[in-house]
Measured scan of single mutants.
Amino acid sequence: TCPLCKTELNIGSKDPPNFNTCTECKNQVCNLCGFNPTPHLTEIQEWLCLNCQTQRA
């Protein structure tokens, strides 16, 4: 489950994953609780959960 919103993560499912791993804290959170803060920078593959995003802001 997502630590932030308690959504079930579909780990091991044949569906596309509905979660990602935060590059900062390494927690697995669902796609609604994390995002790529710099989608225009292709050389930085970063994906932050809302916790890390808030701490950085």
Rank of each mutant, 00 (worst) to 15 (best):
N36K: 13
H40N: 15
C22A: 02
N27D: 08
L48R: 09
F35D: 15
N51W: 04
K6M: 04
C25W: 00
K26E: 12
T23M: 13
Q53R: 14
N18P: 10
T21F: 08
P3K: 05
P16C: 10
S13W: 02
N27K: 10
E46I: 15
G34L: 12
N31D: 11
N18H: 08
C5I: 00
Q28L: 09
C5E: 01
L9Q: 07
N51R: 06
N20T: 13
T54A: 12
T42A: 13
P17N: 06
G34I: 00
L32N: 06
K14G: 12
L4I: 09
L41M: 06
L32V: 14
N31R: 11
N36W: 09
C52H: 04
N51C: 01
E8W: 02
T21S: 13
K14N: 10
T23I: 06
F19H: 10
F19C: 04
N51V: 04
K6E: 09
F19A: 08
W47T: 06
T38G: 15
T7D: 10
C49E: 00
C25I: 01
N51M: 02
W47R: 13
T1A: 02
L50G: 13
K6C: 04
N31I: 07
C52Y: 01
L32Q: 15
F19P: 03
C49G: 00
L50Y: 05
T1V: 06
F35V: 14
I11D: 10
E43P: 11
E8H: 03
P39V: 13
L32S: 14
C5F: 00
K14S: 07
K26C: 10
V29E: 06
K6D: 04
H40D: 13
N31Y: 11
N10R: 04
L32K: 15
P37M: 08
N27C: 15
L41H: 05
T21D: 09
C22R: 03
P37L: 10
T1S: 07
K14V: 12
C22T: 01
K14R: 12
P3H: 11
D15F: 11
N36S: 07
Q45G: 12
Q53D: 14
N18W: 04
G34N: 00
P39F: 12
C22P: 00
P16E: 06
T7N: 11
G34Q: 09
I44Y: 04
K26V: 13
C2T: 01
T1L: 09
T54P: 14
Q28N: 07
T54K: 15
L9P: 06
Q53M: 03
T42M: 05
K14Q: 08
C22V: 01
C49P: 03
Q45L: 08
K14D: 11
I44K: 15
L4S: 11
E8L: 05
E43Y: 03
F35E: 15
N27G: 14
L48W: 09
C5Q: 01
G34W: 05
T54W: 03
E24I: 08
N27F: 03
P16T: 03
T21G: 09
C33T: 00
N27I: 11
Q53N: 14
T54Q: 15
G12R: 09
K26T: 15
G34Y: 07
N10L: 05
Q28M: 15
P3N: 07
E8T: 08
